[in-house]
Amino acid sequence: MNGKDKGKVLEIENLNVYYGAIQALHGISFYVNKGEIVTLIGANGAGKTTTLRTVSGLQRPRPGVVRFLGADITHVKPHQIVKEGIVHVPEGRRIFSALTVKENLEMGAFIRTDKRSIQESMEQVFDHFPRLKERLHQLGGTLSGGEQQMLAIGRALMSKPKLLLLDEPSMGLAPILVEEIFKILQNINAQGVSVLLVEQNALMALSIADRGYVLETGFINIQGPAKELLTNPRVKAAYLGGS
């Protein structure tokens, strides 16, 4: 299977995360193999965002372990985790609205210094998202929702990640645009970037993923190959509109 079993890129072990007294994650464990697209699906408040924020160091588990390419990164600071090769496209896109599209992309390449190879990455981003090139000198805040999502993904790619974390990229977008973006995610994955995709749109997510996990109020209750989850009666009933 085109090199998708070369070992684990991300490994989460017994992750417990609290907000004050509220426990958002109850000892979840999962992994992403090199080259895979893995999706984490679940309803509002299931803990999907919390999981991604913990992987990228914005939230601390107690206890719990996050391993990236075999190394324990549980206590590494967020900006250093980017250097390790994980990049996180946050929920709601969070692009810098007062910076131009170009400046947003430059910030994505913050950890890199070689100007020429940064320029090459920018060209690659434009290959994925030609619309960003047309809007290069426009302020991020003036982009449409879909364009902002493209910028958020493009900005993340500028760090040359090994693992891409995406938090609900389909949120608020028209179905046709969601399809376009998911196709691009598959292209990005085909170029060797492993993907951990958080989604409420379970059908779309499972249709491009290799494997999936279902998160319910802080517990992973169902997991398996995406194809199996698509036919799993419980998943169908709760997340695929019962059809």
Binding site: S56, G57, L58, K77, P78, H79, Q80, V82, K83, V87, H88, P90, R94, I95, F96, S97, A98, L99, E103, E106, M107, G108, F110, I111, R155, S159
Partner: peptide, 23 residues
């Protein structure tokens, strides 16, 4: 780059950290 990073941090610290900026 530092100037732009300051502007990015001004707008959104978490997002800046996710870009690898040392906030």
């Amino acid at each position: 780059k530092t100037g732009k990073a300051i502007r990015a941090v001004s707008e959104d610290k978490d997002a800046a950290a996710l870009m690898g900026i040392d906030v």
